[in-house]
């Protein structure tokens, strides 16, 4: 092997190691039979047991799931509507301004979004409860949904399938539910899953707007860290990681061309 090629491989190996080694440590030490130290003592799954005996942790997991499910559902519905209007509205003024305004939350530093939401909520005395958190997450997730769903809807428009349906006698609503919805379905589902993932693993925004009783899992993990990194944290993180990876895999699976009814070119 030429030295240049070898160097390239070593470099690539180091990059991937830097990316994945921390994750592997977390996973490995979640099975370590030792309390709070980083020396391997033997294999165990007991931390997963103690994890589910911890009522606060289970409550946090449950809160996270509820928030993510609700927020991603709302964000998906809103994102679908927004995508449809942005693509199909014939003479929407400043269409591009709306379009880019929707993706701003993707680029704004999340901490600013968090501070902004917090000061808004306290100003209008919005209870920092479950729905406050859901609202914050909807704001944060919406651009992700639009990003995925709009691409599909505008590709459908490019193929005039909705126009063909209306041409054959379908009203706008019939064209939407007989043509747009079935053809965009995998993208909508993928957008929803992406929103779920984003909401489920969100820390910064949640940290600002979560109140007592709405501690999400990432916040709970953070607070547990005050007493050092325990094997429970590793176990919980592993569960979080696996769940996220599954969702991301599902997203990629749904969003491939193979899985969407192919439009003839």
């Amino acid at each position: 092997m030429r030295p240049g090629k070898l160097a390239g491989r070593v470099y690539a190996g180091l990059v991937y190691a830097a990316l994945y080694f921390p994750l592997l440590i977390v996973i490995a030490f979640s099975f370590n039979d030792a309390k709070r130290n980083l020396i391997w003592k033997g294999f165990t799954v007991k931390w997963y047991g103690t994890l589910f005996a911890d009522a606060e942790l289970v409550a946090a997991l449950w809160t996270s799931l509820k928030v993510a499910a609700t927020a991603s559902l709302i964000a998906t519905l809103m994102g679908l509507l927004a995508s449809y209007v942005l693509v199909h509205h014939p003479r929407l003024r400043a269409k591009r301004a709306y379009d880019s305004a929707l993706s701003v939350p993707l680029m704004v530093p999340e901490i600013i979004l968090g501070v902004g939401l917090l000061s808004l909520y306290t100003r209008v005395c919005f209870d920092l409860s479950f729905w406050g958190l859901v609202c914050a997450h909807v704001v944060y997730c919406l651009p992700f949904v639009v990003w995925v769903v709009k691409a599909r809807i505008s590709s459908l428009k490019g193929h005039s399938v909705e126009e063909a349906a209306m041409d054959l006698g379908a009203t706008e609503w019939q064209a939407f539910h007989k043509i747009t919805l079935p053809l965009a379905w995998p993208a909508i589902l993928a957008g929803g899953m992406l929103a779920f993932t984003v909401s489920f693993e969100d820390f910064v925004t949640s940290f600002f707007v979560a109140g007592v009783g709405t501690t999400t899992l990432p916040i709970k993990i953070y607070s547990m860290m005050k007493f050092g990194i325990t094997p429970e944290i590793n176990a919980m993180s592993t569960i979080l990681l696996v769940l996220t990876l599954l969702l991301v895999a599902a997203y990629y699976f749904l969003n491939t061309e193979k899985n969407q009814d192919q439009l003839p070119v």
Partner: peptide, 9 residues
């Protein structure tokens, strides 16, 4: 239509 716009589903 130019590109037929058949319903692929």
């Amino acid at each position: 239509f130019q590109h037929y716009a058949l319903f692929p589903h």
